[in-house]
Amino acid sequence: MPPADASADAGTAPVADIGTDTSPGAGENRTDTLVGLGQDNEDTLDLRLPDELLALIEDERTGSLAARARDDGMAPPAFGVSPADDLLDRVADWGPTTTPAGVFHLVPVRVERDLPLVSRWMNDPAVAAFWNLAGPPSITEEHLRAQFTADGRSVPCLGMLEGTPMSYWEIYRADLDPLARHYPARPHDTGIHVLTGGLADRGRGLGSALLRAVADLVLDRRSACARVVAEPDLRNIPSIAAFLGAGFRFSAEVDLPAKRAALMVRDRSLRHLL
Results as ranks from 00 to 15, higher is better:
Val109Trp: 00
Met264Ser: 00
Met264Lys: 02
Ser223Pro: 13
Leu206Trp: 04
Ser239Asn: 01
Glu162Cys: 12
Lys259Gln: 13
Asp5His: 15
Arg61Asn: 10
Asp59Asn: 07
Pro96Met: 00
Ile139Pro: 05
Pro165His: 03
Gly191Ile: 02
Leu37Met: 07
Asp114Ile: 00
Leu56His: 13
Leu179Thr: 06
Ser23Trp: 05
Ala129Arg: 15
Ala16Trp: 11
Trp131Cys: 13
Gly73Leu: 04
Asp124Glu: 07
Ala126Gly: 10
Leu217Met: 14
Val214Asn: 05
Gly36Gln: 01
Pro77Arg: 00
Arg68Met: 09
His272Trp: 08
Met160Trp: 04
His272Thr: 11
Arg68Thr: 12
Glu42Tyr: 11
His193Leu: 07
Ala174Leu: 02
Leu144Arg: 07
Ile240Pro: 05
Ser269Phe: 10
Arg227Asp: 07
Ala241Cys: 00
Ala10Glu: 12
Arg90Val: 13
Leu49Asn: 06
Asn123Tyr: 03
Val229Ala: 08
Leu144Thr: 06
Ala226His: 13
Ala200Glu: 12
Gly198Ile: 10
Asn236Phe: 00
Glu162Thr: 12
Met166Val: 15
Ile171Leu: 13
Val107Ile: 03
Ser138Asn: 08
Ser23Lys: 07
Gln39Arg: 14
Thr98Trp: 06
Ala224Leu: 10
Gly191Ala: 06
Asp151Gln: 14
Gly205Tyr: 02
Ser208Met: 00
Gln39Ile: 15
Gly80Met: 04
Gly95Trp: 02
Ser154Tyr: 08
Ser251Glu: 15
Pro257Lys: 07
Asn132Val: 14
Ala69Glu: 04
Phe104Gly: 03
Leu263Ala: 04
Ala224Val: 12
Asp177Ala: 00
Gln39Asn: 14
Leu206Asn: 04
Arg30Cys: 15
Leu37Glu: 06
Asp32Pro: 11
Gly38Phe: 01
Thr99His: 02
Ala209Gln: 03
Asp86Glu: 05
Ser154Thr: 12
Met1Val: 10
Pro257Met: 06
Ala150Glu: 07
Thr44Tyr: 08
Glu231Met: 09
Ala84Ile: 14
Leu87Tyr: 06
Arg249Ile: 09
Arg30Trp: 14
Thr190Glu: 06
Cys225Met: 01
Thr149Phe: 05
Asn123Cys: 02
Val111Phe: 06
